[in-house]
């Protein structure tokens, strides 16, 4: 998947969970990735983060630490 598309999708997820109450948003984003993203997609995301993660929402960055 193109990096732009992946960044867009990941940020959309963060945007939703940011509005949710509580202080476990990053955990819930991480669970969403685990539940719905196939391992290849998660790897691509982690790889992207390892290369700087440009454009990713900070909540996504936080969540990827829990993957």
């Amino acid at each position: 998947m193109s990096p732009e598309k992946m960044v867009h999708m990941a940020n959309q997820i963060a945007t939703f969970f940011r509005t949710q109450p509580g202080d476990d948003q990053a955990d819930r984003i991480a669970s969403h990735f685990k539940d719905f993203w196939e391992p290849r997609m998660r790897e691509q995301l982690l790889d992207y983060v390892a290369h700087g993660g440009a454009g990713l929402d900070e909540l996504v960055l936080k969540a990827t630490k829990r993957l």
Binding site: M1, S2, K5, D35, F36, W37, E38, P39, R40, M41
Partner: peptide, 15 residues
Amino acid sequence: EPGLRIPNMLDAAVD
């Protein structure tokens, strides 16, 4: 582990 959804399958195919 969850599998690929249709759009993900197509992305993976292109990859």
